[in-house]
């Protein structure tokens, strides 16, 4: 994937996207945990709130709201879903 592919942390506020996959260098243990939390390919996510100072970020994933740090969100590739 090209380095300027869209990653989760670069979504705009309230922007919706679909998860494509994870950075292959992302540690497997972390990826497994995020998958258990619902961040799987083809899942729809929407960026909601950002904490002061830019980190962490709250996303809606299906029915739940999950907060992630930038450093992890940066490793998840997404594709924007136009309204």
């Amino acid at each position: 994937m090209s380095t300027d592919a869209l990653t989760l942390d670069r979504l705009a506020r309230m922007q919706t996207a679909v998860v494509l996959g994870y950075d292959p260098k992302f540690p497997a243990a972390r990826r497994e945990r995020f998958e258990d939390l619902g961040l799987l390919p083809d899942t729809t996510v929407q960026r909601l709130h950002t904490a002061p100072l830019g980190d962490p970020i709250a996303f809606s994933i299906r029915e739940t709201v999950l907060c992630l740090r930038r450093e992890d969100a940066r490793r998840i590739f997404v594709k924007s879903v136009l309204p």
């Binding site: 243990a29 972390r30 945990r33 995020f34 939390l37 962490p56 709250a58 739940t64 709201v65 999950l66 907060c67 992630l68 740090r69 992890d72």
Partner: peptide, 10 residues
């Protein structure tokens, strides 16, 4: 810790 940071907002 070995866990990444994540938190649910119930």
């Amino acid at each position: 810790s070995l866990l990444p940071f994540y938190m649910e907002l119930p």
